[in-house]
């Protein structure tokens, strides 16, 4: 039996570090418990992003969250990328390194999307073996996040939570439980999100993600552009109860409001830690929810240059 969170500390309530908030963070040193960075935005940076990160890393715990590991791809692993990742992790004293259970491209291409995998024995063997290789290079357990997804494969033979459970046990890795993604995928794929949260291996869950999404009536899109809705908070309460408490982070990547608004949103988690558990509502909407048809999942993480 593993220690809770694979032995990692519960860092508390954190916020995803975004460039529009650099100035506020440097000037005001907000009382945020920790920051999560998008690894690829910093691993090659010789400019301001890296400089700001190093200042922030002096004061706050940093967790690295990647979008290009492509652990599920049938292309070879990119060892140059892994070494850069490892160097950055050492430089900012990253508490852990995470990415997604997905693939981003094949045949040498990168779609820059988090594409879903067929959930079957072949994929499980493939992903597990690659996690082991990555962990050998990074010399630390990898933490993988359940992605939001919009298609399912006829070739799938198991549920996502079953896949995650077997993968985490076989590869001895950690999990990042994104309860918004669980909810988004549960609506898109007609499954029960509570059953999902109940069945992931709780002691391997190192971290939790919260985010807003967009309701397109027939499906949900993971847009990270708004407040966390009540059914997602309900899943969070469940995850909090089952894990005994985990590092919790809010992602806000589009239509990003001022930092205090983002921070206040994640601080709402405190109330949910103390709230009596209520069953999540399966309805995909909330009061005042926006309905859109042109939403784009997984918003950009692009750093615009500053020039005079």
């Amino acid at each position: 039996m593993h220690a809770p969170r694979l032995g990692h500390a519960n860092l508390g309530l954190g916020v995803g570090l975004r460039t529009v908030h650099y100035q506020h963070i440097l000037e005001h040193q907000p009382a945020v418990d920790w920051f999560e960075i998008i690894s690829e935005n910093y691993m090659d940076s010789g400019g301001r992003p890296r400089y700001v990160l190093e200042q922030i890393a002096e004061r706050y715990p940093i967790v690295m969250h990647g979008v290009s590991l492509s652990i599920g791809s049938t292309d070879p692993l990119d060892h140059d990328y892994l070494l850069r990742l490892k160097k950055l992790a050492a430089a900012v004293k990253a508490r852990w390194v995470s990415d997604h259970l997905c693939w981003t491209g094949v045949a040498g291409r990168n779609t820059h999307d988090l594409l879903p995998i067929p959930l079957n024995e072949e994929t499980l063997r493939h992903v597990t073996e690659r996690i082991r290789i990555v962990q050998d290079v990074l010399q630390r357990p990898l933490v993988l996040e359940n992605p939001s997804s919009y298609v399912t494969f006829a070739a799938s033979t198991m549920s996502e939570w079953e896949f995650l459970t077997r993968m985490a046990e076989d590869a001895d890795c950690g999990l990042l439980l994104d309860v918004n993604n669980v909810y988004v995928s549960s609506v898109n794929h007609d499954f029960d999100p509570v059953e999902y949260v109940q069945n992931v291996p709780h002691r391997r869950v190192v971290q939790c993600h919260l985010a807003g999404h967009t309701n397109c009536r027939t499906h949900l899109i993971d847009t990270h552009d708004g407040e966390v809705i009540d059914p997602v908070w309900a899943l969070y309460r469940k995850a909090h109860e089952l894990t005994g408490g985990i590092s919790t982070l809010l992602e806000w990547d589009a239509s990003i409001p001022p930092f205090p608004v983002v921070h206040a949103e994640v601080l709402k988690a405190k109330q949910h830690m103390q709230t009596e558990l209520a069953p999540p509502r399966l309805a995909a909407t909330r009061s005042g929810a926006r309905f859109e048809t042109s939403a784009v999942p997984h918003p950009l993480h692009f750093v615009a240059p500053e020039v005079q």
Partner: peptide
């Protein structure tokens, strides 16, 4: 098409 792990090279 992108062949880099980073969008900064797109």
């Amino acid at each position: 098409p992108s062949t880099s792990y980073t969008l900064s090279q797109l």
